[in-house]
């Protein structure tokens, strides 16, 4: 695990395109956060637009110049039809009704769900967002990172390696799955993998207890994993391209940020 050391950095590597999009969103967010402050004090029933605690912990040592696996796709660019398609693909293939995952439904109208502009929080402690809608003491800090996709944690060079790093903790080596009080479905010889959008959507948005990886895996990485799962574990030879993944990213992503702290 020589590469282990390189993967923990939580610096912002979002890319120029993303920075621009986020920047515009932030302007709107800051504006909406500043304006109603006076009212907020006297009327605690805050509107959703007031979630920004005006955190501006400017990151240093971060830069958009470092390597990024798939060239910084702005996640906000996918069209509404694709987002809708995502949800229905997940629902019909999975047969699990409304649980296509967080943000897959595209019903969240607010473009900026994150709060503040924390420049990466290596300890997760820099955020002291005192009014975080996700709330929970362990999630306040994490939501500050929301607007900055982090494609640097998983370093595998191909689908098999990426599967080992991102998927194996639950779905087990060779996609065997596991059974305890609950179960992790086997991915090997799994007929549901016949639907490409189903597999992509699962990885992007998660399902049930599974967190989505849309925040942490690039389109290219997801394509690699999907091709590994479908081809190597299920003998389905048609390939998925990063562009196919990009189309399935939700229009207004509310990607799950993994927790950063607990008791």
């Amino acid at each position: 695990m020589a590469e282990g050391e390189q993967t923990s950095s939580k610096v912002f590597l979002g890319g120029v395109v993303l920075t621009t999009v986020v920047g515009l969103g932030l302007l709107a967010l800051i504006f909406s956060a500043v304006a109603p402050k006076g009212e907020e004090a006297s009327a605690p029933a805050a509107s959703p637009a007031q979630t920004a605690p005006a955190q501006t912990a400017a990151g240093t040592g971060s830069g958009p110049s470092a390597a990024q696996p798939s060239g910084g796709q702005a996640s906000g660019s996918a069209g509404a039809p694709e987002a809708a398609g995502t949800a229905s693909a997940g629902a019909s293939a999975g047969g699990t009704g409304a649980n296509a995952g967080n943000g897959a439904s595209g019903t969240d109208g607010s473009p900026a769900t994150g709060t503040g502009t924390a420049g990466g929080t290596s300890s997760g402690a820099a955020g002291t967002a005192s009014e975080d809608q996700a709330g929970g003491t362990t999630q306040a800090a994490a939501s500050e990172e929301k607007q900055q996709l982090q494609f640097t944690s998983f370093t595998g060079k191909n689908g098999a390696e990426l599967y080992t790093q991102a998927c194996q903790s639950c779905h087990m080596p060779e996609g065997r799955g596991a059974q305890g009080a609950g179960r992790y479905p086997a991915l090997a010889n799994n007929p549901r993998t016949a639907s490409t959008p189903y597999v992509v959507t699962m990885i992007l948005n998660g399902n049930g207890g599974m967190p989505g990886f849309g925040h942490y895996l690039s389109d290219a990485q997801i394509a690699e994993i999907v091709n590994y799962v479908r081809d190597d574990l299920n003998k389905q030879t048609d390939q998925v391209a990063p562009a196919d993944v990009q189309k399935l990213r939700p229009q207004n992503p509310d990607y799950m940020i993994f927790g950063e702290s607990a008791g």
Binding site: T7, S153, F154, S169, F258, G259, E260, S261
Partner: peptide, 10 residues
């Protein structure tokens, strides 16, 4: 926590 926890758990 986070992605490294996923990786090490695997």
């Amino acid at each position: 926590f986070g992605p490294d926890a996923v990786r090490f758990s695997g």
